[in-house]
Design a protein around this nucleic acid. Structure first.
Length: 188
DNA sequence: CCCTGATTCGC
DNA sequence: GCGAATCAGG
């Protein structure tokens, strides 16, 4: 894979959105996160605002004798005000997956309760390759999705790598965290 | 252990 | 220019 105009654009866009290098790499495909990071640096767009090390640039012990050949014109016109407060939704902490075109492409919205057949298929597939861990073998990052019947010895936990921050692997997160089950009419 | 970005350096 | 290997922090 080479850095075509289009791919670079995607890179810039995603990087700008705060996506991690690995996410970008995954999106682009054919490249590793290292490649992405390398490209990011070569393109000059580096420091975002957040990351580890918080800039290896140290603290500049000396004064800020910074004024090479660029008086810092700062032609960057911010189209958006950086006001987190104001009328912020409050329920919008960070940009998770802002890959929504905002157009109208939101076709097959399943009826809020069914699990897409693909998801189920994926789950079944994943469960075939489950690590089949016992309760004691579960760790912070092993999928805790139970498989089988606890009353049988045909019982174990998925055990695959969890999706960071979640208790389950990607496949199981998919079926575990449904949008919103329409089970409010549990009248009686 | 998982993840993150930063840097180096042979290609 | 590219990116794997390596480094370094969380």
């Amino acid at each position: 894979m080479s850095w075509t105009e289009e791919r670079v654009e995607t890179l810039k866009k995603m990087w700008g959105e705060g996506q991690s290098a690995s996410q970008i790499a995954k999106e682009l495909g054919g490249v590793t996160r290292n490649a992405v990071i390398g490209k990011v640096h070569r393109l000059g767009l580096s420091n975002r605002a957040t990351s580890t090390t918080a800039k290896t640039a140290k603290e500049k012990p000396a004064a800020k004798a910074e004024a090479p050949a660029k008086p810092a014109p700062k032609p960057k016109a911010e189209p958006k005000a950086e006001k987190p407060a104001a009328a912020a939704p409050a329920t919008t902490p960070a940009v998770r997956k802002q890959i929504i075109p905002a157009g109208q492409p939101l076709p097959p919205q399943p009826s809020a309760n069914e699990i897409s057949p693909e998801a189920l298929a994926t789950v079944r597939e994943v469960e075939k390759g489950a690590k089949k861990l016992s309760l004691m073998e579960l760790t912070e990052r092993t999928c805790k999705w139970p498989i089988g019947d606890p009353a049988t010895d045909e019982f174990w936990f998925c055990g695959l790598s969890v999706q960071q921050g979640k208790p389950y692997c990607e496949a199981h997160v998919g079926v575990a965290f449904q949008p919103m089950s329409s089970r409010r009419d549990r009248r009686r």
